[in-house]
Simulated assay, not measured.
Amino acid sequence: MLWASCKKSESPVEVVSDDTTKPGIVTDVKVENLNGSAKITYKLPNSKNLLYILARYNINDNRVRESKTSYYKDTILVDGFARAQEYEVTLYAVSRANVMSDPVTVKVEPKTPNYILINEGLDIKPDFGGANFFGFNINKAPISVHMITFNSATNAYEEQEPEYISGDTVDVSVRGFDATEHKFGVYTTDRFGNASEIRYVTLTPLFETLLDKSKFSVYHLASDATIGFGWDTRFFFDGNLGDPGWHTVSSPTKQCTFSLGVNAKISRFVLWNRLPDMYGFQNPRKITIWGTDKDNPQDSTLPINSAPGTVAGDWFNMGNFVYPNPPSGLPANQANAADIAFAAAGVNFKMPSAAPPTKFIRFECTQTWGGLDYINAKEISLYGSPL
């Protein structure tokens, strides 16, 4: 046992190479400047033990970053730069024995970083109970949008939970405020720790209220789904979460139409699926809300899976929505008590800020949880501002 414990251990890591020859340098270096980054191309050295190319550079006042690319490529991306200015990048060829070549220094001048472009381009407007921040992320850069609000009680700004964006559009809101003047701010950060300047605004949030369901009425159109089991459309907005609700039979469409009784800018809607199978069977999973400002809108075939803003006759696509998966992360058919409680409280869906006011709603289910050609739902509530 003593001999075994003193035996020299053998490392499982193999030496990559015993050739300690210093590799040659990269040559014929060219730079293409991009937003917050630069693409550097070069000719590789004629070194048989070459493993990768290393770029070392400062991205802001206190952080050094390194990028690597294999010897199979003649291009390396250097990114994370905080500002649009000149930076020095040092390139090394590195051998399989981890021997570095002599340095080659190149200057890059990245364009304005995406996180700054996005923040500067945000359109800040009053939203229901708060402020909306809308803009475009044309390069689909991963960023975080940080919204701050002024607390008059503490005389300080407080930061809300950041929103993480990687798509081509920024459309985020902060809510919970009354319709009086309030101070808001916003800044953006990227994944490298860079942060933009804060933009401050003072505005009055839009008034939001639960639309009066006593003014709602069924507006049946020929292409609406056929009612089943006596669960008429009127039960979809009767304020009763018990039976009956809205239920159809097998039909080419899974939709219903009703009047709001007012012309209103919709901020959000709350949907109650049928318990306890809210994540299964004929319960709606994918939804499109159509609206119109016509007094007597005509029937029209609604395209499936259309984009928001699509017009079909008198109707416009106000937004597409997906009923969320069980919050627990369990498969839909294994939802636990907490998942059921989440659905029982009603699920909120934020209406896109670009959606225009409407007098009527066409609720279209484009996919049920079970992939069925009929649908049921218990109740819907709509919030917004009557005009």
Rank of each mutant, 00 (worst) to 15 (best):
M1K: 08
L2N: 09
W3S: 13
K8N: 14
S9A: 12
V13W: 11
V15E: 12
V16H: 09
K22G: 05
P23G: 07
V26R: 02
D28P: 08
N33E: 14
L34P: 00
N35Q: 09
K39Y: 06
T41G: 03
Y42M: 06
K43M: 13
P45F: 01
K48A: 10
L51T: 10
L51H: 12
L54M: 09
Y57F: 08
Y57V: 01
Y57Q: 01
N58W: 06
N58I: 01
N62R: 10
R65C: 11
T69S: 12
Y71M: 07
K73W: 14
D74T: 14
T75L: 08
G80K: 02
V89N: 00
T90Q: 08
A93D: 04
S95T: 01
M100P: 01
D102P: 02
D102A: 09
P110S: 03
K111F: 07
T112S: 05
T112D: 06
N114T: 12
N114E: 15
N114P: 10
Y115F: 10
I116H: 03
E120P: 00
L122V: 06
P126T: 05
P126N: 05
F128R: 11
F128C: 13
N132S: 15
F133W: 02
F134S: 15
F134L: 14
G135R: 03
F136N: 14
P142A: 05
P142T: 07
F150H: 02
N155L: 07
A156I: 11
Y157T: 10
I165H: 08
T169K: 13
V174L: 11
V174F: 11
G176I: 07
E181C: 03
K183A: 04
F184H: 01
N194A: 07
S196Y: 06
S196C: 03
E197D: 15
I198T: 15
Y200G: 00
P205I: 05
F207R: 13
L210A: 15
L211S: 11
D212W: 05
S217C: 08
S223E: 07
F229Y: 14
D238W: 07
D238R: 04
D238Y: 05
L241E: 07
D243N: 14
G245P: 01
V249H: 08
S251P: 04
K254F: 06
C256M: 13
G261H: 04
I266R: 04
R268E: 14
W272G: 04
M278I: 12
M278V: 15
Q282S: 15
Q282N: 15
R285A: 15
I287L: 10
W290Y: 09
T292M: 12
D293P: 06
D293K: 13
K294M: 13
P297L: 14
L302D: 09
I304T: 14
A312W: 09
A312C: 11
A312L: 11
G313H: 04
W315N: 07
F321G: 01
V322S: 12
N333I: 05
I340A: 11
F342L: 01
A343K: 02
K350F: 10
T358I: 10
F360N: 04
F363D: 09
T366D: 06
N376H: 15
A377K: 06
S381M: 13
L382S: 05
L382T: 08
Y383H: 06
G384S: 03
S385N: 13
L387M: 09
